[in-house]
């Protein structure tokens, strides 16, 4: 054989440089000869099926291994696998924790900007440019894991519509404020503790689920539609939330709220305390106040759909001025205080 004679090796599917070196020389140390014989190669080169590489013919490092591989018809092709962990320089915006048994996840998103998604498996980071029309993204996880899976959303984006119904999540965390206008979380069983970090949220659908804590919803002051039909909420939690809507009404928009659980109490004007402020004792009294306070219904009316019954803003007619002259009070008597029609005294 002539010295420095060169052989030609054709790469097959799934082979990387180490596989080729092992197949030719019997050891991955042969990679040095490959790099010398093919100046265009580097450690970062991704080989493709059909690539032809030069090698020093007759140069073997482990003759026995070459002989065994040849005898058994084995062509090393371990390939290159995507293995978690992945990194990005973009800010992490949201994190979903999924049960280990979840095999796939689905989002539907529209808005502006671009999201980079780490699916929490061995797949590469996925880029999703957002547009005005919702894009539905379905991903099947490519590995099995013993603990919960974490799906992360990175990037600088804002959402117009987001539907996370197709993702079974144990918890959802937002790390910084996220602009999202319409959010659908049907069948969502995770805590709602992330909601205070949503911005501009005017429609929230939380249907057919079970909610143990509605306190985070109090901070969603821009809501105009809240659909909780088919959702199981303990009555006490519902009452506390409705009373909180009244007590923390400042800066809140009027909202259409749909419920299939009835708050406690009777739909009537609440009692007043000695200072003539309302004292709310039940959820239905809070509903009454929200649908009767004139100042809170100026822009748009509060509207409750509760178990098929509608409760909408209705102005209370002021009493007609009495045509009969009132008898003059005796000067020494204090006049009775006249309660205001509706009191903002409840509002923090």
């Amino acid at each position: 054989m002539l010295p420095n004679a060169m052989g030609k090796y054709t790469v097959i599917t799934g082979q990387n440089l180490y596989d080729v070196a092992l197949g030719i020389y019997g050891s991955i140390e042969g990679i040095t000869d490959l790099l010398i014989s093919n100046p265009q190669l580097s450690m970062a080169t991704r080989l493709r099926a059909g690539d032809i590489l030069d090698y020093s013919d007759g140069y073997l490092i482990d003759t026995e291994t070459v002989a065994i591989l040849h005898r058994d018809g084995i062509t090393p092709s371990g390939g290159e696998r995507h293995v978690y962990f992945k990194e990005t320089s973009l800010a992490c915006r949201a994190e979903f924790h999924l049960p280990a048994a979840a095999t796939s996840a689905q989002f539907s998103l529209s808005g502006e900007g671009e999201i980079q998604i780490d699916w929490g498996d061995n797949s590469a980071l996925q880029n999703l440019p957002l547009g005005p029309q919702p894009s539905t993204l379905t991903h099947t996880f490519d590995n099995v894991i013993p603990h919960s899976r974490v799906v992360r959303l990175y990037g600088d984006f804002s959402l117009r519509e987001a539907d996370f119904t197709g993702i079974i999540t144990e918890s959802l965390r937002l790390f910084m404020p996220l602009h999202v206008e319409e959010l659908t979380l049907d069948g969502f069983h995770a805590p709602l503790s992330f909601l205070p970090l949503t911005e501009g949220l005017y429609a929230l659908r939380l249907r057919n689920t079970k909610i143990e804590n509605l306190a985070p919803l109090v901070e969603c002051r821009s809501l105009m539609l809240l659909d909780m039909e088919g959702t199981d909420i303990p009555q006490q939690i519902l009452d506390e939330w409705l009373i909180a809507l009244v007590k923390k009404h400042y800066g809140r928009r009027a909202c259409h709220i749909m419920l299939t659980v009835r708050p406690s109490g009777v739909y009537r004007e609440p009692e007043r305390d000695d200072d003539l402020n309302y004292t709310l004792t039940s959820g239905m009294e809070a509903v009454w106040l929200l649908t009767h306070e004139e100042a809170w219904n100026e822009g748009a009316p509060w509207h409750f759909s509760i178990c098929g019954e509608e409760y909408v803003y209705e102005a209370i007619p002021r009493p007609e001025p009495n045509s009969d002259p009132e008898p003059e009070l005796e000067p020494e008597l204090e006049p009775e205080p006249i309660p205001p029609w509706h009191s903002g005294g409840m509002n923090d």
Binding site: Y18, D19, L22, G23, G26, S27, I28, D62, T65, I68, L69, D72, I74, T75, P76, S77, G78
Partner: peptide, 11 residues
Amino acid sequence: ASPGSLYQHPT
């Protein structure tokens, strides 16, 4: 493991 997949012990 399949033969060829462990680079240190290829067989």
